[in-house]
Structure formats: C-alpha cells, structure tokens
Design a protein around this nucleic acid. Structure first.
Lengths: 197, 197
DNA sequence: TTGTATGGTGAACGATCGTTCACTGTCAAG
DNA sequence: CTTGACAGTGAACGATCGTTCACCATACAA
C-alpha cells in the first residue's frame, strides 16, 4: 500500500465524487461514494471526506451532508472596467450567473469547436479560441457561421443580399467567397470563449 | 381554505423549493420543505411533491430524493474547424465539459466584468465582452490584469522588466503607462467570453 | 527489527429520511 | 342540508443516513 495518498489522488477522488452529481442531480451518499471508489467501509469514506473538506475540495452543511459547490460557480457580474472599479456593496447587488446558462440556449444542439487559422481575427476570434456552435439556429445575415465550401469547412461571416449569399472573412488577407452551388451551413456561432494560461 | 391550489400557487411553491437549493447546494428534505412552506406535516409535503413531480416542476430519483433538474450543461468539444468538420462518431469520442469548470479555477475569488473601451482590442478583447477576473491569482509578466492607475481602473497587459513595471494596451492608439507609485492590481484576466445576439 | 502513522474493514448506534395510515376541517356542488 | 373532494395534521414504520468504535494490514522511520 502506498504510504500516503498524493494530492493528485485526492483531487482525482474529489472529481469522481463531484462528477457523480452532474448526472445524478445531487451529491452522492457515503455508501455511494464507497461504491464509486471501491471502498467497502463507510468509515473509509468518512475519513476521506474529512480530508477533502479540509482541503476545500468538498463542502458539507451543518447536517454533514455533502453539498454542491456549484452555487459558488456562478459568477458575480459587475459593472464595466472604466466605469470605476465596483465596491463590495455593488457586488452584492449585482446578479450572479452561470457561464453555461448565459452562453448556451440549446444544449443538445450545441457544441464547442477549437479555432485554427486567423480568418476571423478581425472579429476578435483568435486561433486557439473555442467557439460555441448552435446547430438549431437559423443563420441570418451578419451571423458568423460554420459552412462547407467546396468540401472544406470554414468559419465566416454570412452576408445575404437578396438572393445572393457571400461568405466573408474578418481579415483583409482573405477574399469573400461566393459559393458555387448549394451552401451547407452546419451551425451559427453563438459565443466565443478564450482561456488564458 | 381555498378550494384548490391554483397552478400559480403550485409554481410558487416549486420555486420556493428550488430556490432553497441555490443557497444550500442541495434540494431540501421533506421536513425542510414543510418549514419553508409552513406545513407541519410531512404527509402534506409528500402529497405536494407528488403533484409537483407530475407537473414536471420537480424531479426525484429512484430513492425518492429530490434532485436538481439543472443538469450541468456540458458541451462536446470537437476538433478544429479547418481540420475538417467532425463526424458524429468523433463527437461521441470527444470529451464533454462545462464552461464554468473550464474557465473558473477559483470560484469564490472570481467575477465577471463587462469590457468597455477598445484598449485591448488587439488581444481579441472587444467592447461588450465579458472578462473573468481572478483575484486570487498572482500577476505574472505578460498577464492581462485589472489595475488601478491614478485612481482609475483599467485593463492592460502587465509587463515586468527587472524591477520596472509597465502597463501596455493592445492597441497602438494607447501608450504604455508607467505607474507613478504603487501599482494596485485587482486581479488577473483568466478568460474572455463573448455572446452573440 | 521495532514502533508508528496511515488507509481500509466491519459492525453497531442514534438520527433522520421518505412512506403510509387514520383522521380533521373546510369549501363547493348536488 | 348532505356529500364528496381536497389540504393539512399527527403518529408510526422500516430504511438509510452519517458517526463512531475497535481492529487489521501495510509501508516507512528510527
């Protein structure tokens, strides 16, 4: 038996526990945690939970029940940067929201795509960014869409003028594309996400 | 006593129950629901819960426990746009993830800020975007930070060269700023989020 | 080699869970 | 006025919860 559980191992177990809640809609009981981790004794689970709680990896209420730390995952939306930095008092007043709820309207029809290439850099979409693609949404004039042009998929502005349709990049180095035949649109970009570090 | 509970009254009670979970991190027990609604009998709660469940206002698992019906909206992360559009088979293989989990490392210390001004447009951060600010993170050279300069808060690149510190915009129209005295850094930008429509 | 801290087992416990049953009071239709 | 449907009371029930205790097995340090 390895002498002591590494922080990585602890984190992995905490992740196993919290991921249970994603499908179950609630945190697991001690018995269920034991089943998840292969521990046959609830006491082993109790010791583990105490350690994870001390490390801030889990939260419990006054009754000893595990609670989701997802409410804390909702962020406070404050004012704008240049309107002066918000005071704590303002923070309390502001709404909290989840990024998932904010960005995703049709969860089943949406997915993420990693951006490569700089054809949309003029629109603030850089290589490495993630774009949220909604398949269910109708593409309107001015939308950024994922479209098939001559067998290859690209991301471009959709410009409609009467009956004619044009795909325009947000980068002067790329020319507008006039689809030869039928234009296949896979989805509309409804959001952009960038992560630093 | 009013003859029958109106749908509005039912919805109001369901909202009371679900709002409990937002602060508690879990759904309330039957006893707690009774306390919330002023019902002294758990049987009254049980009857109410059955009705709310039949109306789809609440969800329960096989053990009769109330569960959150806000399944974490997880998205499929697919390949890159120009690597060819992914097939359904690839989708299944790809990981799913939540944007909250992806972008926020320290939920308690993080908040959102709406961007105004175009001083960071060269870094793909446009007016109207939301930036995720992490107060707990140490600012390193090259990070984008929220900093106080002469009493006003701005968002800039942090450039450290030896002992000297410089705040640089990502827009040629703005000049680098050399802080006169102490530099107050409110937080580090860990992510950017943009929502269309 | 011995001592000790650590992870885990297994069983017992009181508390609380959701379920169920018999019952009360009240309103509205017949 | 009678009757039935409905909201709620109160108590009892078995099941399961998290806690606790004594104990075992292993790996590391002295």
């Amino acid at each position: 038996m390895s002498r002591e559980l590494s922080p990585e191992m602890l984190q992995k177990r905490a992740d196993t526990i919290t991921s249970f809640s994603r499908t179950a809609g609630r945190m697991p009981t001690f018995s269920e945690i034991g089943a998840l981790l292969g521990l046959r004794s609830k006491n082993a689970v109790a010791k583990l939970v105490r350690r994870l709680e001390a490390h801030g990896m889990l939260r419990r209420d006054a009754h000893g029940r595990l609670v989701l730390d997802r409410p804390a995952r909702s962020l406070r939306l404050l004012g704008s940067v240049e309107a002066g930095f918000p005071s704590p008092a303002e923070e309390e007043l502001a709404d909290t929201l989840s990024l998932d709820d904010l960005l995703i309207k049709n969860p089943q029809a949406s997915f993420l795509l990693k951006v490569s290439g700089d054809s949309m850099s003029g629109a603030g979409i850089l290589p490495g960014d993630l774009v949220i693609v909604d398949r269910a949404q109708n593409a309107k004039n001015g939308d950024i869409v994922i479209a098939e042009i001559d067998g290859a998929w690209t991301m471009k502005y959709l410009k409609k003028e009467g009956d004619s349709v044009l795909l325009v990049a947000a980068n002067a180095r790329y020319r507008p594309i006039q689809p030869r035949q039928e234009l296949k649109i896979a989805g509309v970009i409804t959001g952009v996400v960038r992560k630093y570090q």
